[in-house]
Amino acid sequence: MIAQLIEAARRRADGGADALWRRGERTTVAFEWGRLKSAGASEEAGANLRVRHHGRVGVAGTTATAAPPDELVGRALASAALGEELDLVFPALGPLPPLTTCFDRAANASLDDLIGIGRSLLAGLEREGCRVNVAVERETTATRVANSGGGSGEYRSTACGISADVWRIAGDDVLVVSDALEGADVPSDEALAALVASINARLDHALRVVEPPEGALPVVFTPAGLSALMLPVTQAWSPRSTRGSITRCASSNHPKVPSPSSSPPPGCPR
C-alpha cells in the first residue's frame, strides 16, 4: 500500500510526500481482584501520509487501508491548504542505523507465558486484607516508511507492558499502591521481582499511618510524589485535565498497561 500512496501523492503534491504504514498485533491478559478474568487479541493496520504542496505541509491518516490511496492524498492536500509553511526535504535511500527493536522472546511469548507472568506477580503481591489487579500486554508491530525522494525502510518491533496494583480498603480508608514495567522485551525474573518488592515496600510504609502536621512546613517529595508538584504545570499544558487520567480511583480498577510502541504517528487516528 505504501508504494501506491507515495505514487498517488507524487502525482498531486508538488513538494513531495512521505508515508508510514504500520500493522500491529497485541495480546493482553487481565487479572481483576485476584483472579484471571479476560484475555484479548487485537489486530490493527493504518497508514499516515504527509505531503508538501505549494510550500505548505499537510497530514492525514486512516485505518481504512483498503480505501483508494487518492482518498487519503485528497485529505492530506486539504490539510496542506491550511498547513504550516515549511521547507521539508525528503531524503533519498541511505543506510539504516543498526538498532534492535524486535526481541524473539517477546515476539514468541504465548498466551500461557503471559498468564504465567501475571500469576507470578499475583503470588508475590497477595496479602491479607488486600486485593490485587494485574495486567500483562505484549505487542508486535511491523512498520514501513517511504518517501518521494526514494528513501524507504521497514522494521519489526516488540513491546511488553506489565502493571499491578494492590488495594487495601479499611472502612472509609482506601489505599492503593501500583507500579508498572514497560520495555521492548519480556521483563526478566529479576525485573519482575523488583516490581513486586517496590510495591510491597511502599505498601508496608503506607500502612504505618501517622497524622500529618498542619501549617507551612518544608516538604520532601519522592520521585513519584513530584507529580503533585508538577500538577499545576501539567494542567497549564492540558486544560480541562480534571476529568482525565489523573483520577486515581478510576484508572486503577482496570489497570492501564503502557505500550510504548503503540502510539501512532502524528495525525494517525487512534
Binding site: 499537510g58 497530514v59 492525514a60 491518516g61 486512516t62 485505518t63 481504512a64 480505501a67 482518498e71 485529505r75 486539504a78 490539510s79 491550511l82 498547513g83 504550516e84 495525525g267 494517525c268 487516528p269 487512534r270
Partner: peptide, 10 residues
Amino acid sequence: LESATASEDQ
C-alpha cells in the same frame, strides 16, 4: 494555525 487534519477510522 498549529494543525488542521481530517481522519477516518474504522
